[in-house]
Nucleic acid binder design. Structure first.
Lengths: 199, 199
DNA sequence: CGCTAAAGTCGAACCGGGTCGACTTTAGCG
DNA sequence: CGCTAAAGTCGACCCGGTTCGACTTTAGCG
């Protein structure tokens, strides 16, 4: 396999993603047209559609690259044996900063990964990776005896993920506006989840 | 005030919303073009933009009509003095059914209200109404001594809302596929929230 | 090496959301 | 009632994502 043809195809794909990383970062998603990407990649506009079914798919590929970078930064900041709430706090605030470096970017990201038009493996993969990272943190917390062992890891991870997600939504709907408010909201909700709401 | 002009304007507005209720329901949001709406309302395409700034705004107006209907049905199903978890369960499952009557509809709804392009009062209003309805349920639960009184009502409502939101996302990303699974997921998460995750 | 069918490419066109600016209606004043 | 400025209307157009179909390249067989 991997004949000349496949190699070239892979190269072109890379070129499109590289153009996306470049242009989405500098001009933003909406303001970058498919034609811009095509020109930057040195191909024709409609050729882009040989490699990606839609603009959103290019976005997801672009996100993959960025995600890698962001998650490697995470491990430098979080002590794997710190109390759970500290770890979650750090993780979410890092993620939050990353997402709001470009407000537009974060919005599209959430929309496309969490409420995608069709069930593509791409979107699910992104979520899974996030959930896995959360799962590891939770596992360690369970081993330390910090949290109830009878709850399922998947639903625990999902629970925390939702809290993060909701805080983001608060940002986009205008309920909260500053980083401090995000921080307060996040901590309040994490506390509720950990302590329990019922008397 | 309310001269002939304002009356007619209101009429035209209504005609557009009526066309939206009709066409969005039958053909779906994406497949209904502005021109379709204009034709159905008996006006020109660009006149639509005198009444609404964007297609999304028409969607929100359409949703307003549907929302009213759905929430009135709610009060017939939920006993205001039933245990909190039962009330939440009923509320969310009703809401869920409503939203998935048309899958497309639910997706756009979440996207536009929770992650809107710009902070419009419209989207915030929709959320606020939902949060208010939740707040009432929580108030009664507090009065019955079911939940911790020291937590802020807003954040409690937000917490439950997020759980619902996350379950929906699970549906759209393909983590869950059937109504039963939604129900199980919902109950699991509500339990976690009420009991508390920490040991 | 020549041929062919499949794969890859891209210009042209489609489609639908949104804008512009010229035209039409009408409120409300004298 | 007549006039005018403001409000309302809409045809023509722009723009960008996506599709179509004709053209070009190339793998791989004889």
């Amino acid at each position: 396999m991997t004949g000349k043809r496949e190699q070239k195809k892979e190269q072109t794909r890379q070129a499109i993603v590289a153009a996306a990383v470049d242009l989405f970062s500098s001009k933003g998603y909406e303001k970058t047209s498919i034609e811009d990407l095509a020109k930057a990649a040195g191909i024709g506009k409609s050729t882009v559609y040989t490699y990606f079914k839609a603009k959103e798919e290019i976005f997801l590929a672009f996100f993959d690259e960025e995600f890698e970078y962001s998650f490697s930064a995470l491990h430098e900041h979080v002590d794997p044996d710190a109390p759970l709430i500290n770890q979650l706090h750090t993780l979410f605030m890092l993620q939050y900063e990353f997402v709001t470096k470009n407000r537009e970017f974060g919005r599209i990201l959430v929309r496309e990964t969490l409420f995608p038009k069709s069930v593509t493996s791409l979107a699910k993969e992104s979520n899974q990776r996030y959930l896995d990272a959360l799962g590891e943190i939770l596992n360690r917390a369970k081993e330390r005896g910090e949290i109830r062992p009878e709850f399922d890891n998947f639903f625990l991870a999902a629970h925390f993920f939702m809290i993060y997600l909701g805080s983001l939504s608060g940002l986009y709907t205008g309920y909260i506006t500053t980083t401090e408010e995000v921080e307060i909201g996040l901590m309040t909700l994490l506390n509720q989840a950990l302590q329990g709401i019922a008397l």
